[in-house]
Design a protein around this nucleic acid. Structure first.
Lengths: 341, 341
DNA sequence: TACGTTGTATTAATCGATTAAGTCTCGTTT
DNA sequence: AAACGAGACTTAATCGATTAATACAACGTA
């Protein structure tokens, strides 16, 4: 028995009806009698025709049910990050319910042109490493939503990063503190380093700069100050990169009393380093994190941090994209006072 | 300036050549003179034609450069599992290098029919929760590779699970030990439970049963034995499910001296429970894991386990699929003797 | 009876490309 | 000078569907 790929035409010929009728049987039940429809559908099942070819449908209908999730970095990195993983979960749960499919797209890709023709839309999670992508996405006029950053003309999903950072910093800061900041992606460097006077990249767009603004507001309100030599740039929210910064900051003198970290991963690594150096937290050193990942709430001492639900963020991003809603949303966050402040 | 989607035909008309020539300029440089090609390409750039429409290419060429990664469970679950995450990393790193795209497909989906027409192939990571999918994948004759289980007629990527389990069990077992096993997906139940005399599901296919075989061989060689009432079924490699089993096994009497766990996640949870109950490891209780996740090698006491590189596995799976190589591969594993035995 | 409606099914154009086969022009070879 | 082959480009069929426009029959209504 030779297996040949059946087409709509084959089926139409075999059943002696027009191709339009077969197509309608699958797509527009109101266009033919219920009896004929049943007849056709059961005949198809019998001869092994599983329905219209999807590739042809994509071309003809201009719709593929595929949504591209454009990640900030390489896929490799993102999948291992707990915050991003939760986000992906949120996205996928919504997509699955609506029979949509998820294409993972790396943010360090050259171009989106090789998928733009067939995907239905884009969810951009954080500013892509390759800034050109953002440009391209604006130009192509496909539906898109931006998460944790902004794309001109696209709905954005965000929390108020400035306010959240301000509030968490306020929990830790006291007058007279020596303050340091372990920042995430503040400048355009591939390695961990102090920023000194480096120009901050794309200030308007990045959540990191919003967070920095919040920290600064809290710092100045408590009568402190912090210069670029006490602000670290960490290229990825990754333990290894964070460790370098942690070691540097803890061994500089005078050692800070309060360190504000732009992610929990960074904060946990700092905490680990501090403990292994015998520094007592929070007596000698206060630490704040950001994100509220499970691990941060489980491990002892647990972090003072900003909790935001990445799951919810992902779900909302997907819902927004699929509904065609053009409004941006601001999600709520929650402060968690832990044992590190 | 109104933006209209340009087609090959538009471009051909504008440049007064045939559509074939334009197409050839993009796809088959040897079919036209270098001069004309340059002329066409630069003209396209000028008028904003970014190349042939991908949706149309998919239909016409029967190739999309999209590879579906069929996960064992829902996407939600898999993304949060460190072993699976590493695997995805491995897959994606290879795909990206070859300009292929990654479609994440849930293993609890009803059918693959809605993507089979346009994806180039399937990577199946573990037996999908919906067993019907495996059937469908065999029927459609698309390239596919199976990882951590077997699909008839498809190359398989695996380690020797029987031998690995045997060896790790041998590290822990002593004559006279009371043994228990915390197994993963042994039977077809959605909750954690002892298996007693439940029939094991799909024995031939699942790696879990291979592992069980290995354990059993080691157990009988050391003169011990273990019945179904000392073997637990855990439906997912997840801390919460594992915790139930851990509590049950540690509070049953007589309490086992050695517990073999089919994943590190399970073993770590067991370790945690044991420590919180004041049970001394390994003096009073020996534990082995499986997988070699980073966390298992970092935390104290660190696990005795089987290390396999999920990253490598993912990369090999992708390479095998893309090369069309029909040979199965057996990857090597490494035993890590930790502080828990 | 004639006319408008409603319900079914068909015809044929279209989505945006790829590619085998064919045509035409030159330059070589004998 | 005739025949041949190579190179450059075009023609037209094809991939597998969707859908607006159309045709036709049966029915209700005035």
């Amino acid at each position: 028995m030779k297996k040949v790929k059946l087409t709509l035409k084959d089926v139409a010929a075999k059943l002696d009806v027009s191709t339009a009728t077969i197509s309608n049987a699958f797509n527009r039940p109101d266009q033919l009698s219920a009896a004929k429809r049943e007849e056709i559908l059961s005949a198809c099942k019998k001869i092994g025709y599983h329905g219209p070819n999807k590739a042809a449908q994509i071309l003809r209908k201009g719709q593929s049910n595929i949504v591209a999730l454009v990640l900030a970095d390489s896929i490799e990195y993102v999948v291992s990050d707990p915050v991003a993983s939760k986000f992906i979960q949120g996205v996928s749960s919504v997509l699955q319910k609506q029979n949509k499919h998820l294409l993972l797209y790396a943010g360090d890709s050259k171009s989106i042109l090789d998928v733009v023709d067939f995907v239905d839309g884009f969810i951009c999670y954080g500013a892509p490493r390759n800034a050109g992508l953002t440009q391209e996405i604006i130009q192509q006029n496909k539906p898109a939503v931006a998460v944790d950053f902004n794309i001109e003309g696209c709905p954005a999903i965000n929390i108020d990063n400035e306010e959240a950072s301000y509030q968490v910093a306020k929990l830790a800061l006291k007058e007279g503190d020596r303050v340091a900041i372990l920042g995430l992606r503040l400048i355009d460097a591939p390695t961990t380093c102090r920023i000194y006077d480096s120009p901050l990249v794309e200030t308007a767009r990045s959540i990191s700069h919003r967070r920095l603004d919040g920290y600064m507001r809290a710092i100045s309100e408590t009568g402190n100050s912090v210069g670029g030599d006490w602000i670290w740039h960490i290229p990825e929210s990754d333990s290894n990169y964070a460790r370098q910064a942690a070691k540097e900051v803890l061994s500089s003198s005078p050692r800070p009393d309060t360190i504000l970290c732009m992610s929990d991963i960074i904060a946990l690594e700092l905490l680990q380093c501090a403990m292994s150096m015998g520094i007592r937290v929070p007596d000698e050193l206060k630490i704040t994190g950001f994100d509220g990942i499970d691990e941060a709430l489980r491990t002892r001492p647990y972090l003072t941090t900003v909790c935001q639900s990445s799951l919810e963020k992902g779900a909302l991003a997907a819902t927004t994209l699929l509904s065609g809603n053009a409004d941006s949303s601001e999600l709520s966050f929650e402060l968690k006072t832990g044992e590190t402040t």
